[in-house]
Structures are given as structure tokens and as C-alpha cells.
Design a protein around this nucleic acid. Sequence first.
DNA 1: AAGGAGGGCTAGACCGGTTCACTTCTGTGG
DNA 2: CCACAGAAGTGAACCGGTCTAGCCCTCCTT
Lengths: 342, 342
Amino acid sequence: MSAPSVRVTIKDVAAAAGVSKGAVSLAFNDKPGVSDATRERIFAAARQLGWAPNSSARSLSRQSVDTVGLAICRPARLLGLEPFYMEFVSGIESVLAERDCSLLLRLVGSLDEEIGLQERWWRERQIGGSILVDFHHEDPRIAPLRRIGLPAVAVGHPSLTGGFPSVWTDDDAAVAEAVRYLAVLGHRRIAHVGGPRGLGHSTIRTTAFERTMSELGLDGGPHVETAFSGEDGARATRSLLLSAERPTAILYDNDIMAVAGLGVAAEMGVSVPDDLSLLAWDDSQLCRLTHPTLSAMSHDVHGFGAQVARVLFEVLAGHDVTSGPVATPSLVPRASTAPPPS
Amino acid sequence: MSAPSVRVTIKDVAAAAGVSKGAVSLAFNDKPGVSDATRERIFAAARQLGWAPNSSARSLSRQSVDTVGLAICRPARLLGLEPFYMEFVSGIESVLAERDCSLLLRLVGSLDEEIGLQERWWRERQIGGSILVDFHHEDPRIAPLRRIGLPAVAVGHPSLTGGFPSVWTDDDAAVAEAVRYLAVLGHRRIAHVGGPRGLGHSTIRTTAFERTMSELGLDGGPHVETAFSGEDGARATRSLLLSAERPTAILYDNDIMAVAGLGVAAEMGVSVPDDLSLLAWDDSQLCRLTHPTLSAMSHDVHGFGAQVARVLFEVLAGHDVTSGPVATPSLVPRASTAPPPS
DNA sequence: AAGGAGGGCTAGACCGGTTCACTTCTGTGG
DNA sequence: CCACAGAAGTGAACCGGTCTAGCCCTCCTT
């Protein structure tokens, strides 16, 4: 009664259908060379035996794999908190699934570890290509991974991705929109709680922040670097609120830090949005659950992931790749932003 | 200059080292039959050619795969929010990585879709085994997956997992602890915001809640069913706070709903913890970021994932499996719980 | 009726490893 | 000096598919 542990192979199906292995292969790959009647007979036999082609054998002989890799390099405790990645992964998968492809996911502790992993994956032909995320300045992954010829698509601005075809969000424009919005509300002392300087998109956002501030004739607002954790966001907010030139608005680089900022404001008796406006990035459900609800720069992370996957398939198909930005994050005003106290 | 797209195989390495394919295989698998000197020569040749064994070829001839599957069935938007899964996955991977194993992750939309996926994975020999999560009552996955003989470990109480070896947390005991704690503080009207009834561990918690309440001689506190989303948590909290018999304490089944509950209390001018105590489940960083900080039932999710992976390896090795619970979640009191108003 | 085209199908090489039966060589005990 | 054990290494079969060259047949053309 237990599982028939006999391994059923293409040969068994062929025998059952009274044809050769080759015919079965043709039928299962939708290729011409078998009549409709035979094809049906083959499918029936396969169904009855519960056979599906062995994927190792298939990729061995096809010389190709239908798996793509994704390594994410952040401490797990942080990752769990950022809704971004799960949503991103689900976008990737929505496209992979259409093509019967799988995603090999790995959380790594450092970029060097990632380099080793990607190299191994590629050399062992475990993956057909990879998605590279979180680019740093002068990213150390670029040289070795290009050298081994790993087909990949990079998530990040082309200025960071060292020649890999890439997909990115126009953070520069989005930051500008965020800052201008706060300025229009009347804020003049605007602070920015950003990510670590090494991380490419953090730098882009920080630069955009400073540029926009000076374009608006506002003295460069204070900028604090963090590692994206909630604790960091709380610490940064606390120190900003205690500073002599206390800002009237704070722009955060993710939503978890903004939530933390809201907590700190409450703790210090600073009223949001009356005394202080907060603006989050990476809008997630979280921003709608707090009181007051958080205004945020929102974007379609699921669609972002899907687009990345689509471009990867272009790369794998050997097509000319269409690097390009996805839709720019746009402002969703909620209850955490208002004119500054007069 | 571009990547030397020549495929280097074991034959090339053998030639370079002046031995046969077999010798290279022995060397790379740490098997006796080659001298230390030869072994070194082989490694040197491999290193120089940048060779690593092709994983498809290897699993084809070994008749085994070093990949395990995990399908998670929840809407992506929800998933992103629950820190639980990322942390859980990272725990799984910490064990897989030690054994050079990979995780195939897929987000699915329904249990039926998962059944199809797991069957395909297994029949195509893409995975050597699987991790099954989120068991429902009379879970429809059990019968078909047992029938095809998929080696798997289940995450959930044995009463739910239909004979699959399993790992679980003792939610019953944890709920009892939570309720008793609130009772000791003096609360008598305690409410429970739980998950959907179909979901196994939700039912266990709900039952435990009701049992403990009656053991303590408290009239069965109101229980609300939700789908685990923040919006659900907000809605549930709102209706509880508006009810005639307004509870003085609420126990939530995850942390995101507790955060939402906190927002609703603030919005309605109900002071936490003075007028209302809140207790969260699945303690994450989030619980420390709000104001007030959230008391929670905390457990080591990373370790949970790791233990699940270890048991899966037992299963794969054909050993007798050691099903068993992991450490029971324990209460971490913070600022959201206090005695009820007198 | 001969020649050609093309559909349907098969045999067998091949993908890149692992493994097993077997050979060769070296040292060892009787 | 021979028998024998064990270590080192080889050659070929095998894993389960894909794919190409080629065979047979039917139908069409002239």
C-alpha cells in the first residue's frame, strides 16, 4: 500500500505506450514528429504511471537549468521586518511560475559569502542565472561574477551595477518629490534618516535629498545614517528631536524606521503631525495601521520583482536587454504629514 | 576576454591531472582510493580550471537531490508583513547550508496549488523532501502527498499533521500562560483576536483560550476570528472596544494585529495600558518599536526553523524520526500590559 | 512507374557525473 | 620464493533524459 518506490522512467512510459523513448520525449516537449493519436496514448500512459520527466536528466542533456538564484545579504532579524523582500520575491515568482522555473533563495551574511555562493551555483550549474540586489559603491561582486560569465540582472541604478543589465526605481526623483512636498507644506527644517553610506541606493537618496534641499534654498537639513533597523530609526529620531535645531519634518528610508520614529515621538510627547511630520519609504500595510497613519512614498514592489524576472529571462534568452527604471515611487499622503507649527 | 564559455568537465580535470575520471570523482567525494599526492594534483587542476561538479549530472547518477522544498500559502501582502516566515526560512537555511543543500521556495495561492506543486517537484525529482507548514483541519495535502511517498516534515501539532513527522510549538501551554498572566494582573474580561478557524494552530489556541478562561472561572471572553491581517486586527479591536462588555485586555494571535490594535486604541482615546492591556504573539522587533512597547509571547523562530530542517534530514536519512515540540513561547512583559482600571 | 517530399517513428550517441569490477603494484608473512 | 592482502587507479556501465541521423511509408508529381 505504501508508495510504489519503483522509479518510473521514460522507458517504462515508452513501453506502456508501445513507442520509443524518443517519441515520448517529443510528445512531452510539444514537438512535431508524433501523430495526435500516439501523443494521446503517450500522455495516457504517463498519467497512469504517474510519470514526469526527471529534471536532473533533462537539464543534463539539455545543458540548461530552469532555476534562478537570489541571495539576500542582510541579518535575518532585519529581513523579516522589511516587508519589501517578501513582496519582491513574490513578484519574481509570479513570473517564474509562468515558465515553470524555480527560485533558489539564500540568505547570506556578507558580500564575500554571496560571491562564493553565486560562483558555486553557477559552476555547478545549479542556476541558469541570478538576480543581484543591494548594490554597494564599487560593489565587490561585479568583477568576479562578470569574470565567470554569470548571466544576471541587477537591481539598482546603472551607475552602481557595473555593466550588468539592470532594473531600478528612480529614487532621485522620488526623494525630490518627497522633499518638495514637505517644503510646500511649509517645512524648512527637514531631516533625513537614511541607510548606510556604502549601500548604493542610500547614497543616491542622500545625494538627492541634499541637492533638493539646496535647490529649495533650505540649509542642508541634518542627515543621519542607519543600518535600516527599527532601533536605528528610534535612536536617530530621538537624537534629532533633542537637537538644538529640531526638525519639523523627517523623511525615513524605510517604513519600519518611520514606525519607530512615531513611537519615539509619542514617547517624547511630540505630537504628530502637529509638531512633527513623518514621511516613510516603501509603503506597506504597516503604514496604515499606526495612529496616526503614516504618509509614505509608495511603490509597486510586486511589479518591480516581476519586471526584474522578465528582464532576467531576456538575458537568459540571449536577447538584447532592455535595462530601464520601473515606475517611480509616488507620494501617498496620510495623517502623519501636515504644515509645521506656526 | 569574455568568459571562456567552454564548458569544463570532469574529463578536462582528469586530463589535466593525468588521471581517469574515476579518480577525480573519488578525490572530490573524499573517498579512499587515491593517494594524497594525486588528490592534491587533482584539486590543483580543478582549481586552475575553475571546475566544480555539475549538479545535474551528480544527482542523476547518485539518484538523489540536495534540494528541499517549501511552499507557503498566504497572500503575498500578508506574508511580507509577518516577520515570522523570513526568520523561519533563515533558520531552515542555517542548517541546509551546513550540508550544502538548497531551499526551493514558492509562494502559492491555495492548498490545491500547493498539492500540485509538491507532486510535480517530487515526481520530477527536483526536491529530495519538503517542509509542510500551516496545517488545516483535515488538511487536504495529507492524503495525496503521503500517497506519492513524499518525504516531508510537518510544522504543526501531530493531531493535525496526519502522520507526517512533525515539529511544533506548544501553543496550548503558551496561551494558558498568557491568559493566566493577564488574570493575575487582575483582568477578568479578556478577549482573544485569533486566526481563521480552519487553520490548525488557530483552533488550538482558541480552544486553549476558552479552556483556560473557564478554568479560571472567567466567563468565556469574546473571541474574534480574523485572517491575520493588520486591517483585520484593527477592525476586531474597534468592535471589541465598542462592545457593551468592553474587555480590559486583548490577546492577539500575531504581532501585526497587536500593532494595529494599539493604533485603534490611540485613535479612540483609550489609554494603553491604563485602560486596556494588549498582548501580542510572535514577538518581533516590531513589538519594541511602538509606544508603548508591546508585551508579547516570544519564541525563537530561527531556532524553530533550524530544528525543522534537522528533522527533515533525519527523515531523508531514513532514520527513525524524533518528532517533538520546540521550546514553548514565553511571556516577555513590556509596557502594554498592566492591571485593569479599578 | 520512377522520383521526390515529407510525416511518423526508432536506434543510438550524448550530457557529466558515480560506481563497480577488475588490474597493477607494493609490501608482508610464512 | 610464493601467496596474498591491500592500496592506487582504470575502464566501462549506468543514471534518465534529449536530439540527430536515418529508415519506412504514403502521397504527389510528372
